[in-house]
């Protein structure tokens, strides 16, 4: 695998995760638990879309086949998408949405904090911009995890249920393959083994405050590194891509 091929795949991994998580959060727009929170979640979604936009645009340049960010977002199938499985999980109730966001925010925070040191200037620049947004996202989602964990009996048990559904998708975020090893050698990518303990500490700290426990079953699902997804992604993409695919000659 050449550096270029590896970088392209690496960028898809990052861009697709932001894209799909943004798409999921955007489903809440107009349906939030109260107006202020509806707006807050939309802001997060907008930041993620902005990140996806810059990363996929760069991916297109790296690939060098003239594909734009829109070509990549709207004209790839589910077997060509590399987003983390956790990002595509259904919104469920607000507990699940918040917990999903928290796990992703905590990952992104430590991940992009390291990636700003990448020898790839573009990747370093994108990371530097993203990290400010992510710092706020993490503050928002952790405060909500604490609120819902401690709020009422109902909110606590909803959080436990969400934990049970989502925990199994957190492991693969740290998985590395040939893409990583090629790029780590070049100083472009970062070692996810170094991100993991930071993520675990943060999660432990917030879950403790929220009086929540990690589930007993710690088996981890995997697949996104090989573009193998849960059944959700196909539905997300068929909705998201329907218009550009139905009129392939049209410009929007």
């Amino acid at each position: 695998m050449t550096t270029k091929e590896a970088l392209f795949k690496y960028l898809l991994r990052l861009g697709d995760t932001s894209m799909i998580l943004a798409q999921r959060n955007a489903e809440w727009c107009g349906h939030g638990p109260f107006l202020e929170e509806d707006l807050a979640l939309t802001n997060i979604s907008l930041d993620l879309l902005g990140q996806a936009n810059s990363i996929l645009q760069y991916a297109g340049q790296v690939e060098g086949k003239g594909r734009t960010e829109d070509d990549l977002a709207f004209h790839r199938t589910e077997r060509e998408y590399y987003n983390h499985l956790i990002a595509e999980q259904a919104n469920g109730d607000y507990a699940k949405t918040i917990l999903r966001q928290f796990f992703c925010d905590a990952f992104d925070f430590y991940f992009y904090s390291e990636l700003v040191k990448s020898k790839d200037e573009m990747l370093a620049a994108i990371s530097a911009k993203s990290i400010k947004e992510i710092t706020y996202h993490l503050r928002h989602s952790s405060s909500w995890v604490e609120r819902l964990g401690n709020g009422t009996d109902e909110s606590h048990s909803r959080m436990e249920k969400a934990m049970d559904e989502l925990w199994r998708f957190t492991g693969e975020m740290f998985e590395m393959n040939e893409v990583d090893s090629v790029l780590i050698k070049e100083g472009i990518a970062i070692d996810l083994n170094a991100v993991r303990p930071k993520w675990e500490n943060k999660v432990k700290e917030v879950l403790e405050k929220a009086t929540l426990k990690i589930p007993a079953n710690t088996f981890m699902q995997r697949g996104s590194r090989d573009a193998k997804h849960t059944e959700h992604l196909g539905f997300i993409l068929s909705e998201m891509q329907s218009l550009p695919r139905s009129l392939p000659d049209a410009k929007w």
């Binding site: 955007a26 489903e27 727009c29 107009g30 879309l49 829109d70 709207f74 550009p244 929007w252």
Partner: peptide, 22 residues
């Protein structure tokens, strides 16, 4: 929002609908 045909269109629409909430 989930069906906007480009990333740009999606961002604009999302921001606009959010403004309406505001």
């Amino acid at each position: 929002i989930t069906r906007a045909p480009s990333l740009r269109a999606k961002m604009i629409l999302l921001a606009k609908v959010q403004d309406e909430g505001g």
